[in-house]
Amino acid sequence: MNVLPFGERALLVELPTGAHTRALHAELLRRRAAGTLPPVTDIVPAARTVLLDGLADPQALARALPTWDVPPFTPGASGAVEIPVRYDGPDLADVAALWGVPPAEAVHLHATTEFTVAFCGFAPGFAYLTGLPEDRAVPRRATPRTAVPAGSVALAGPYTGVYPGASPGGWQLIGTTDTVLWDPDRDPAALLTPGTRVRFTPVGPAA
């Protein structure tokens, strides 16, 4: 791991892989729950980095972090969140073509994959899910859409995401869900948080 200062009160920890990032994030949450982590305002994972923000003495933690024994990431004991999906997205055929399979096979591949929330960003409750093999990565749309409907299930790069609300977006839309991903009046507001396991289950088109 590579620990970089990020201003006066934060550290950015760089990890070699997404799996290492997941593992360090889980270890940080364990230590915070156990009361052995110095007080910190935010622990924010991303693709290959974890941010620790709001530290009183970042340098002390920067010295300690490389000495930690961080066990490999293991998905939580609780079951996966199931998200029913109508695989009817306008970009499903394009994604299938990129993968070199018929659309029905693309649906099967996606719906039999177990995903993990790597991190959140872009908008409240927008989770970046990993789980697809590396060779299934797809580019963003050449021209982003000005409006993507809420509940759109979409792919970009190695990630799957579900748009929590309507917004502009450049991801490849493969399906739609009625599941509410984000509701600030609900507790918890976000259905998907870093480390959560997720499965997408195909449902037929609305009758």
Binding site: F6, G7, R9, A10, L12, D42, V44, P45, A46, A47, R48, T49, V50, L51, D53, F119, C120, G121, F122, Y128
Partner: peptide, 28 residues
């Protein structure tokens, strides 16, 4: 690859002109 941002971070977008992130900045 997307990485977390902090308030006060000075990001350099493709036009090369620095942006100082204030309270409503994106988290990544």
């Amino acid at each position: 690859p997307s990485e977390p941002m902090v308030t006060g971070a000075v990001q350099v977008p493709p036009d090369g002109l620095p942006v100082v992130f204030l309270a409503d900045h994106p988290t990544t």
